[in-house]
């Protein structure tokens, strides 16, 4: 039983320790371009005039991601600086997967990534992406596990294109459909 949200909705959520202290709020989401997952969050202080905190929160140090807050065990979950959020020299565009092209393994371009769909809970994962098609339609595309991402495109199984959803309500069924399909007819890696 998990909820889902677009990664963009995480922005502004408070980061709260299990002891009930707030460490700040999520400012930006930094994707890990090697897996298409989330690498870390950058944080800002809370309040109208608060600036950036310059301390990154690594995805693996998140205790749980909920609809109302990002929970961490304690203040030590934060990095001492925000170097984790800095792009590496050989990466393009800050290691962001937003804006890159999505192509099936057989070579059909589906659209460009506009957001990621995140499953909330104790082991939050990127479960798919929102893409904008050439016809400017936005659809949600489930993925089953890490995807192959280069600076040019993100590769998804051919089957993924057949299990898209129009909204988050329909996304669960689409993701389930894709998982079933890949279990029975695995595609070559």
């Amino acid at each position: 039983m998990t909820g889902r949200m677009r990664s963009g909705e995480i922005t502004g959520k408070p980061v709260v320790t299990l002891a009930g202290e707030d460490l700040g709020q999520v400012k930006d989401i930094v994707f890990d371009p090697s897996t298409g997952s989330i690498g870390c969050f950058t944080l800002a202080g809370r309040g109208l005039l608060a600036g950036p905190l310059h301390r990154a929160l690594l995805w693996r140090n998140v205790h749980a991601l909920g609809p109302d807050a990002v929970m961490v065990r304690d203040a030590s979950a934060l990095e001492d600086d925000d170097t984790a959020a800095q792009p590496e020299a050989d990466e393009r565009g800050g290691g962001n997967v937003l804006g890159i092209e999505v192509t099936t393994r057989s070579g059909t371009t589906l659209g460009t990534v506009t957001d990621a769909v995140v499953e909330t809970g104790r082991t939050p994962v990127v479960a798919g992406y929102e893409i904008e098609t050439a016809e400017h339609r936005r659809v949600l595309l489930p993925v089953a596990g890490p995807v192959t991402v280069s600076r040019d495109r993100m590769l998804v199984p051919d089957a993924a294109a057949r299990y898209t959803a129009g909204d988050l309500e329909g996304f669960g069924a689409a993701a389930e459909g894709l998982r079933d399909r890949l279990r029975h007819e695995p595609e070559e890696d």
Binding site: T17, A19, G20, E21, D22
Partner: peptide
């Protein structure tokens, strides 16, 4: 109750 802090009760 896991924690009662300055921001929230967890």
């Amino acid at each position: 109750i896991l924690g009662v802090g300055g921001y929230a009760v967890v």
